[in-house]
Amino acid sequence: MKITCNGEERVMAPGSTVIDLLRMLALDPEVVVVECDGAILKRPEYDSHLLTDGAVLELIRFVGGG
């Protein structure tokens, strides 16, 4: 299954969720905002939202300090 994440094509196992993608990218889900196929996901949805073939994701990762 192929997805596009921040413009880059990636191969994911069928049945993967958003949290699987974030783990693969070594990203802390708490500091990432996820847009999947044009919709902003709420934090609890990361664990359940299934990625589909051809899905387009945009991830925005935050770092601390202010």
């Binding site: 500091v31 905002v33 935050f62 770092v63 601390g64 202010g66």
Partner: peptide, 29 residues
Amino acid sequence: DDAAMKAVALRVALTELKGVGYVGASGVA
């Protein structure tokens, strides 16, 4: 200051405060 709160704020802005202009920050140290 907290990165997780920055993410919470942007999620809220994009889902529940759609008419509001928004200016966040990340990476200033």
